[in-house]
Design a binder for these strands. Sequence first.
RNA 1: GGCGACGUAGCCAAGUGGUAAGGCAGAGGUCUGCAAAACCUCUAUGCCCCGGUUCGAAUCCGGGCGUCGCCUCCA
Length: 465
Amino acid sequence: MIYIYDTLTRQKRPFIPLKPPEVSIYVCGVTPYAEAHVGHARPAVMWDVIKRHLTRRGYFVRHVQNFTDIDDKIVRQALAEHEDPKALAERYMAQYTDVMQRLRVIPPDYAPRVTENIPQIIAFITELLNKQMAYVSGHDVYFTVTDDGTYGQLSGRKIEDLYAGVRMEVHEGKRAPQDFALWKSADDTEPGWVSPWGYGRPGWHIECSTMAAQYLGRQFDLHGGGLDLVFPHHENERAQSMGYFGCEPASYWVHNGLITQDNVKMSKSLGNGLGLREILEQIDPVVLRTYLLSVHYRSPLDFQLASAEEWGRGLQRIWRLWDEAKNQPAPSEWVDEPWARRLESFEQRLAECLDDDFNTAKAFAEVFEMAHDVRYGMAQGHGALALAWARRNLQAADQILGLLPETSQVLSLSTMAERLLSIREQARARRDFQEADAIRNLLAKAGYTIEDTPEGPRILSQPSA
RNA sequence: GGCGACGUAGCCAAGUGGUAAGGCAGAGGUCUGCAAAACCUCUAUGCCCCGGUUCGAAUCCGGGCGUCGCCUCCA
């Protein structure tokens, strides 16, 4: 049984899909007006693991993640960069997709865009108007937030408390300060669409209600996004969807903790977000990916490049083991010892970690312990068996966590390296260690690390830490 | 001001009633020509502080202190 923490009920609940074996997921995507930063990578990587785990547990996942490709910020940024808003959005969407691919994130099944769903949005708003849940004010349309006890449940606040917020936006046309825009008028120099209420653009929250319903139906299983979206975005989205359909849109609201830098939240408006492309120039994508998974998704994560590199040093031990194990056949020997038993049950334990609200941090602890058992088995004279299990288990872990290196750490020897190594071996044989060390240093300068193992020397593509 | 989260070893970090996972760094040892890798051993009588509930609490309750987030665009 899988347990998932649900923001609405504030508890971990058993996961029961609406229509098993299908699982429907809606994750709020990005507004593409700037480069993606680490804060965007966390939910992407986390949902990737959730999907992989659900899939292995036998579910059939349908994942929708939107692009809010039209918005005031895009218009503003396009003006600043002297670029067509559509082209700008297109550019950043491509960049986002590219960088997530490098992080081994399986793309969503549908990545709908606001600009391609305008008629549906207008229809959604029209229905809300018909139901008297919204009102027209000039050329704008607002949603009426009613105090029926449901609004505020998700974010845990009361409407009267909202008045306490000094910075609550005041709009001429609003009947109540907590009402929010469904349709915003725009002048004709800006991008927009003709609607029954005039030329304009959709408000911020309506696109998610509309597209979730469009691609997943009125009710779906999991709704995701960053913790910073709980209010007002998800609160408003829930109000719209419930207003339209009269039922809870999502069975579980799943929110990831935010990433900070020097203990300050990363955000586009603060301009302190470390760009993902910049980070990936300094750090291996798999190291970054797994570093993000080394902390439970609901906890805050203070991102430090040094911490990620430190994590990478630990991960390298796993990679080295993989190099030794990757060509092993399936285990063929039977040894009735605790370490062998544990290797046998590794995959099951890994899955159980993830069953518990996707505890990837604990899952990694299992991976490291599994590596210890392999080494122990090897030391007990069961090298072939232990490595066979290592291959199997690391592959299984990789399918969910995506932790194995892109390419082998051990290089196939080039002719020149082979010759150098052979000369060094001859030197070592005649105990001319001065020359042997000279050759090793030479190769080290070129970025290669030589390790003398009982099976002979091998060359690694990265200097050992 | 309102609401919420968090505070576990030098650092990162699991752990929601049963006696402190894992990683990095550090110390000692085995192996090695030396390194590297690997392996073994060690490193929190204690989980921000003070009370309380309990046979038993890092885990539950109350009160402090501290950090962060949301209330405005945000993953």
